[in-house]
């Protein structure tokens, strides 16, 4: 059943409509949401696959799955990360408010609709600049409740990050604060779909559903994630502008001091900077978009002291 979550009239002959697909009935209820950032499409594949798989195997489903493929339809339809009309990052507008502007009203209605679910999985896809291995990110303040769930999700990495006030405006924070456990998945890269990652997450979602008693069909084997705190993550940022040409593949183990790539100057043929790994470990983030400025994030390595 397709349900309308929010409808807001746009100025000229069109409404902004946010929809969800409801499959099954009764509890428990799982919400799978994606498309908050219009340039992140990895979740589209997962939404599509999950939809088909569940509707073809309804006898194995015990509970309700709500799939929200596009929280930001205007962004997805225009390849815009934020909300096109106001240039706002939608994931900084939660929990929203009925008294506020349109964006806040939309955020409030979405929050209300998802709140009360037994679990929410919020799928993101990095951005157009960086490629990520499949990972779950949770705030340290919610670790006790959420870490036990993450081992079912079949992701490569669990990153338990520090709390930051600004992140209190995210959907995940708002839902967790309202008592709805919410896991944030990051994987792949913006404006692309990495099917292998999507299949990996799909297996994880089914495994988690089985754990919640929502799914009784056999599930492919899963692997638990590597667990990391902020202290174990090393960052590599550019110190010079230019074009980044990587010397390593994404998702591999690198050694301390290993060359990660160069920042080149195509005008002179020179090399402005050679970048090395600050630690031995898993290269879980690697820059994909070549144009860099001073400060541009090049890589993240899981290594050092945990």
């Amino acid at each position: 059943m397709i349900q309308e979550v929010v409808r807001v009239p746009l100025a000229v002959g069109e409404d902004l409509v946010i929809q969800k697909r409801r499959i099954g009935s009764g509890g428990p209820r799982l919400c799978v949401v994606t498309g908050t950032h219009g340039d992140e499409l990895e979740g589209q594949y997962v939404a599509w696959r999950l939809n088909r798989l569940l509707q073809d195997n309804l006898s194995h489903l015990h509970g309700t799955v709500d799939i929200y493929p596009a929280l930001n339809p205007l962004g997805i339809s225009t390849m815009t990360r934020g909300m096109p009309l106001c240039d706002l990052d939608m994931n900084r507008t939660f929990p929203g408010g009925r008294d506020g502007a349109m964006s806040e009203l939309i955020a409030a209605r979405l929050t209300e609709d998802i709140t009360g679910a037994d679990l929410c999985i919020d799928i993101h896809a990095s951005n157009i600049f960086l490629r990520e291995i499949p990972q779950v990110r949770i705030n340290v303040n919610t670790a006790d409740k959420l870490v036990p769930l993450t081992k079912y999700l079949n992701m490569n990495l669990l990153w338990i990050h520090a709390a930051a006030t600004v992140l209190e405006s995210t959907l995940a924070h708002s839902l967790n604060a309202a008592g709805t456990p919410t896991l944030v998945v990051e994987m792949g890269i913006g404006i692309r779909i990495t099917r292998a990652f999507g299949e990996q997450l799909l297996t994880g979602i089914l495994s988690l559903m089985a754990h919640l008693g929502m799914w009784d069909a056999p599930v492919a084997p899963i692997a638990p994630p590597i667990v990391s705190s902020d202290g174990a993550v090393s960052f590599v940022n550019a110190n010079f502008p230019g074009m980044f040409f990587p010397a390593v593949e994404h998702g591999v183990r690198v050694e301390q001091g290993q060359k990660l790539g160069v920042i080149a100057d195509p005008l002179t043929g020179g090399i402005r900077e050679t970048l090395h790994s600050p630690a031995a470990g898993l290269l879980f983030t690697l820059r994909e978009y070549p144009v860099v400025y001073e400060g541009s994030l090049i890589a993240r390595v899981l290594g050092g002291s945990v």
């Binding site: 990360r81 934020g82 240039d87 900084r92 600049f129 600004v166 960052f235 940022n237 144009v291 400025y293 001073e294 400060g295 541009s296 994030l297």
Partner: peptide, 26 residues
Amino acid sequence: RRFWAADNTDINRMFPGYDAGETTQR
């Protein structure tokens, strides 16, 4: 462009900044 033209981030959402961080944080 309204925000930092390379990555569309808002400098006024980056304070107090971070000199070893991303471009607009710096």
